[in-house]
Amino acid sequence: MIVLAAAFIVIPLAIIIWVAYVGALGLRFCWNTLFRYSEMETVGEHQHGDPRR
């Protein structure tokens, strides 16, 4: 019963800490994919010029 009682506290806390860590890595990847790469592509297009112009 002591183990179960400890699990009620330890497991949720461990999950929260782990999710905060992995979530930060995952969200940074998503942020870069959503915004950074878009900016880089836009810059790239300007540098190379649009052949249709």
Binding site: I15, W18, G23, G26, T33, L34
Partner: peptide, 19 residues
């Protein structure tokens, strides 16, 4: 990308609900 955001939500707040 939505999964990552949704995962963070469910992974943080369902355990908070249990606590």
């Amino acid at each position: 990308q939505t999964d990552v955001f949704q995962f963070v939500l469910l992974g943080l707040f369902l355990p908070v609900g249990l606590l």
